[in-house]
Design a protein around this nucleic acid. Structure first.
Lengths: 339, 339
DNA sequence: GTGAAAGCGCTAACAG
DNA sequence: CTGTTAGCGCTTTCAC
């Protein structure tokens, strides 16, 4: 494994010139540039990122902290971020927090702070003020995806607006008995996402003059199974079966569709179902949903990070960039039977 | 951000002693050890992994290369590997190859070789001899998960045996018209996994004296949608509808179950379905399957890597460790209607 | 048991 | 445009 010295020798220049020629920093004559490149190629030379990082203070590596790996939404965000990072010449080191709180502390105490990353992307994670300030003290930009974080550049969808839009879609079709499958408090780690979605749902209802019926709300855990169980309860109720269900995630919505089928109900004729996410299976199930474009979210997070990593960048402290969302109407929603 | 010097000063010792006390290499008196630790704690000192790596040649970081992020199986392997790595004090740098061949070259040429990782775990990836030898030349252990790789320590399930077991389960129940939904050639990147599974299926059939009917085979892409489409074809055939379907993945098997329902067929009375994986949704759908324990696979890969990273380790070149699998019988399989 | 000092491989002034 | 020369922050002989 040849070092910069070998390349310098072979090219007949100094190591400084090799460094300049290869990194593009500082001027080098075209002729020597070519000679250096040729030499590097011949020796199969690759820089030692450690030595380089030590000298420059930059690692070309960003840490991504994520609460789950095996949920579609998070996987997609990660995928988007990974691709964008790669295209900028950055590596991504992954910290998955699904192991619990201990793991979380370990990650922050021993890993992120090892000066191994230039920046961190926190996905759906409500960093503590202490975690934020430690990172910021070390001059490491942070961008948060999924919610506001004091002192941090963030990207987030307006969950209230999303839920409102979904509910309004149902209202506009003529539904009045609209149930909502939301999150349970255990899921609140994500910036009160379930709570915000419930607000949006209630706000839309109120605005339309529809009374909010608390028995039409069921909590679940954002999984297909959870949505299935909740929908069974809702749809099995003999006295007031809702004509429509708004689930706070597509996975739960799909669960609801399956629950309806299990009960012999037809979607959308007997019950309309709408979700949030535009999950990869949404199309297959004909699910009407509010798309959230997670891969784009990952890419946008990287773009913002790259900006902040520019030396010319003036620290613009915290600010939130809204994320796009869009109603996608498929075949799981229609007018209520006797509207 | 304090350096080792500050700690040394505060503790009243040399930097060498701090290094020894903190890393545990070399003897330090209990008293000074404590003083150093206290000083480090007070200053919130954390080593610079770059400086440390540069000095030792070890990065405490491993690269994981994976073909997909958003397939349950791969996410689970990754999750297992991440946890195991973390517990060994290693970081994980992620390289997702779903971007195509260009990305693949980029990853190998510019990233893995930057001396940034101590080793690499390749998941379901058939590294080229060239890729393997470059890595090995740099003295970077590799462990492959998912198939044999010349010159590399690998872990893999016996796909032929798995498929055979699945098929035998169906045969033992009395089925004779057993269809198989396998992969299409495009999916062959994974060590001919679909082909091996098909072999196992055919072998079991032959052994039981059942003629192989090529019309009972359908290729799909390992997704739920793909399985659904293939099953529709199979089950819609008016002349020889199979009494059982063996799908090469749970996602396809679930698609098959849904296809059966769409056609008004009952699972398992009208048609039995078995898959492979023990996907997180398998239980929900009552799917009989062959479990593959992907998280365990990730953990085992890390264990083997840790062994190879031991300085005392004697290079044992290539060898393959078989991975466990297990038949899990649920409610999607039963005896054929008129057995 | 502890300190001094020589690097690890590269980059970034500073000269020229 | 290019070479010289300090380090970057730690680890590790080699002495004491």
């Amino acid at each position: 494994m040849p070092g910069i010295n070998e390349v310098a020798q072979l090219a007949g220049v100094s190591t400084a010139t090799v460094s300049r020629a290869l990194s593009g920093n500082g001027h080098v004559s075209e002729a020597t540039r070519r000679r250096v490149h040729a030499a590097a190629l011949e020796l199969e030379y690759v820089v030692s990122s450690n030595a380089s990082s030590l000298a420059t203070g930059r690692t070309k590596n960003v840490g991504v902290v994520i609460p789950f790996l095996n949920r579609w939404f998070y996987g997609a965000v990660l995928e988007g971020a990974e691709q964008a990072l790669l295209s900028h010449g950055y590596d991504l080191t992954l910290y998955n927090l699904s192991g619990g709180n201990d793991e979380r502390r370990t990650v922050f105490e021993h890993f992120l702070l090892r000066k191994r990353v230039d920046a961190v992307i926190a996905i759906s994670l409500e960093l503590t003020p202490n975690e934020v300030s430690r990172l910021l003290d070390m001059n490491k930009p942070i961008v948060g995806v999924g919610g506001p974080l004091p002192g941090v550049r963030t990207l987030s969808v307006d969950d209230v607006a999303i839920a409102r839009l979904a509910t309004e879609h149902l209202l506009a079709l003529g539904h009045r008995a609209i149930a909502h499958i939301g999150g349970n408090p255990d899921y609140e780690l994500d910036f009160h996402l379930p709570t915000n979605r419930r607000y949006g749902y209630e706000a839309a209802l109120e605005e339309a003059g529809v009374a909010i019926d608390p028995t039409l709300f069921h909590a679940a855990d954002f999984t297909l199974q959870g949505g299935h169980a909740a929908a069974k309860q809702l749809l099995g109720n003999p006295r007031k079966r809702p004509t429509a269900i708004f689930a706070a995630s597509d996975e739960m919505a799909i669960g609801a569709i399956l629950a309806a089928r299990d009960l012999g109900l037809h979607v959308p004729d007997d019950v309309s179902v709408i979700g949030i996410d535009d999950h990869e299976l949404a199309e297959f199930f004909g699910l009407t949903t509010i798309a959230q474009f997670p891969a784009l979210q990952g890419r946008m997070a990287v773009d913002i990070l790259m900006e902040q990593l520019q030396p010319t960048h003036t620290a613009d402290a915290s600010s939130n960039t809204p994320l796009p969302f869009e109603l996608i109407v498929r075949s799981s929603t229609t007018r209520p039977a006797q509207a």
